[in-house]
Computed example of a mutant assay.
Amino acid sequence: MEKESKIYIAGHRGMVGSAIHRALNREGYSNLITRTSSELDLRNQDAVANFFDEEKPNYVFLAAAKVGGIVANNTYRADFIYENLMIEANIIHQAYTHKVSKLMFLGSSCIYPKLAPQPLREDYLLTGLLEETNEPYAIAKIAGIKLCESYFDQYGCNFISVMPTNLYGYGDNYNLKNSHVLPALIRKFHEAKKENRPFVEAWGTGSPKREFLFADDLAAACLYLMKTYNGRELVNVGTGKDLSIRELTEMVANTIGYNGEIRWDTSKPDGTPRKLMDVSRLHALGWKHTIELPEGIIMAYEDYLSNQEVYAI
């Protein structure tokens, strides 16, 4: 990518898209194209075609998606598969039609089978059954990967796919009904400390293990791969380290300074037992994360404190 290349960031107001936008700005890319969802409905085929006709971007970061935590994924199953399929199909096809130089599709670690061997290697895709609670979302993301592969195979399009692990960071979703585990814990412990509550309820057994990557680290990896990687195969992006939800919960409580009891609601689902990414391909390509989890939680909490009026909804 040249500094003056026309770069479209789909989903620029989400946590991942905004991190990519910041990273591009920092590196001096000045010709960035964005649209809010009210300005451009990515589910609308004609609207997306008209947008590409008008703007003719050279590069595309496809970070737009309908996302949520375990409850949202399981509750809004039709919305999650339909909206994500439409968004990715419309953008990827128009990128082909308008001869975009390169496109990056961002997926999710939930594409891998529920009981796949750990750590999760890229070639484990489609080797087993998916986690039931987020199967519709996962199938949509797998379809996005296969779209990129198919346009690569049939038309020679330079469309690459990256699969991030669990993400957190600036601009995260703190809505307790549909957020992911880490931001939900930050909000729960902050409010419990503020209101002197004697206990905080955490979901599940605490035994599942998860890996977490700060969104700005993901953005740095995306820029690196956009500049250096042109392969058909998807690339995992993560830290290669995980911890139990119980350990994470205690880490967040300590960071916030909450000293009350933690109670586990075992009626709530645990989800996949473990989701650790194999990042050996990424490391071999020359990139490694820089923000460790304890530091990242502090950064995320400071962001939450600075934006509580926005986040606490």
Rank of each mutant, 00 (worst) to 15 (best):
R197L: 15
V279F: 10
G257S: 11
R263A: 00
G238K: 09
K268F: 11
K241S: 06
L223V: 07
K194I: 09
Y258D: 13
A192K: 14
Y229W: 09
D216W: 01
H180Y: 06
T255F: 01
H190L: 00
G260R: 03
I245E: 10
V235R: 05
A192P: 05
E250T: 10
K194T: 08
A220F: 06
R187V: 03
F212E: 08
L218R: 08
R246Y: 07
C222M: 10
E247F: 00
A253N: 10
S280P: 07
V200M: 11
N254A: 15
L276M: 03
A219T: 04
V181N: 03
A221K: 05
L234Q: 11
L182D: 13
A220E: 15
G231N: 02
L243N: 03
R263K: 12
N178M: 07
S244F: 04
M277I: 06
G206S: 00
T266H: 01
D270W: 05
R274P: 01
T249L: 00
T228M: 02
K177R: 10
R187N: 07
P198G: 14
V279N: 08
T228K: 11
R263D: 02
F212I: 07
I245L: 15
N230S: 12
F212L: 13
C222F: 01
L243G: 04
V181Y: 15
N230M: 02
D217C: 11
L176H: 10
G231I: 12
E211V: 03
D217N: 14
W264S: 14
L213P: 10
P183C: 08
R210S: 04
E191W: 05
A221L: 03
K194E: 13
A192L: 14
D270N: 13
K275P: 00
G204F: 06
L276I: 12
E195V: 01
I186A: 09
E211K: 05
D270A: 06
L248A: 10
L225T: 02
I256N: 11
F199Q: 10
S280F: 06
T228D: 09
K193H: 05
T266D: 04
S244K: 01
S179A: 14
L213C: 15
L213A: 11
K177T: 13
T266M: 08
S207C: 04
A215I: 07
V181E: 07
P198K: 07
K194D: 13
R274V: 04
N230G: 13
S179K: 09
C222V: 02
R246F: 01
V237C: 13
I256A: 08
T272W: 00
A202N: 11
I186Y: 11
D270G: 09
K227V: 03
A220C: 02
L225N: 15
H180P: 00
V181K: 01
D242L: 00
D217T: 11
A219Y: 04
E211R: 05
K193I: 04
K188G: 05
N196Y: 03
L223K: 04
F189M: 01
K241W: 03
I245A: 02
D270C: 05
L225V: 07
I256F: 14
T249P: 05
A219N: 07
H190K: 04
G271C: 07
T205G: 02
G260L: 11
R210V: 08
N259Y: 04
V235G: 09
R210D: 02
A215R: 06
W203Q: 14
L276N: 01
G206N: 00
G240Y: 04
A220T: 11
